[in-house]
Simulated assay, not measured.
Amino acid sequence: MWKLLRDRRLEGLKFRRQAPLGPYVLDFVCLRHRSVIEAGGPFHEPERDAVRDAWLMAKGFWILRCPNTDIQLKDWQIIARILEVVGTPPPQS
Rank of each mutant, 00 (worst) to 15 (best):
E47F: 05
V29I: 11
P91D: 06
A39N: 03
G22M: 07
I37T: 02
C66A: 15
R34W: 02
G12W: 03
D7G: 10
H33T: 08
G22Y: 00
R8E: 13
L26H: 00
L10Q: 03
F28M: 09
Q72A: 12
D53Q: 07
P67N: 06
R32I: 03
Q18I: 07
P90R: 03
D27Y: 01
P42Y: 09
E84S: 12
A50Q: 14
P42E: 12
D75V: 08
D70Q: 11
R8Q: 15
A39H: 04
R65M: 08
Q77S: 12
A19M: 14
S35M: 14
A50S: 13
L13P: 04
L10T: 10
R6I: 00
E38W: 00
L56H: 01
V86E: 07
E45F: 12
A58G: 12
S93G: 15
P42I: 08
E47Y: 00
A80C: 01
P89C: 11
W76L: 12
V36N: 01
P20C: 06
L21C: 10
I63N: 05
P46H: 10
P67R: 09
D27R: 02
A50D: 14
K59D: 03
K59S: 01
Q18R: 06
I37K: 00
V51N: 03
Q77I: 02
R17C: 14
R9S: 13
E84H: 09
L10R: 07
Q72R: 09
F15C: 09
W76E: 14
I78L: 13
Y24V: 05
F15D: 06
E45P: 02
G87A: 13
Q77L: 15
D49E: 12
G87S: 06
V29S: 08
A39Q: 07
W2N: 05
E38I: 01
P67Q: 08
F28P: 04
G12R: 04
M57V: 11
R16Q: 07
Y24P: 02
L21D: 00
A19K: 07
H33R: 13
E11V: 01
M1Y: 04
Q92Y: 11
W2M: 13
L21Y: 04
Q18T: 05
R17T: 05
D49Y: 01
A58H: 05
E84K: 11
H44A: 03
Q77C: 04
P20I: 02
H33I: 03
V86F: 09
Q72L: 15
G40T: 02
F43H: 14
L83V: 07
Q18Y: 03
V86N: 06
D75H: 08
P91E: 01
P46M: 10
R32M: 11
Q92K: 08
V36H: 00
I78H: 06
S93E: 06
F15E: 00
V85L: 13
K59N: 08
R17Q: 14
K74Q: 13
D49Q: 05
E11S: 15
F43Y: 12
T88W: 06
D53A: 08
E84C: 08
P42F: 00
S93T: 09
T88A: 12
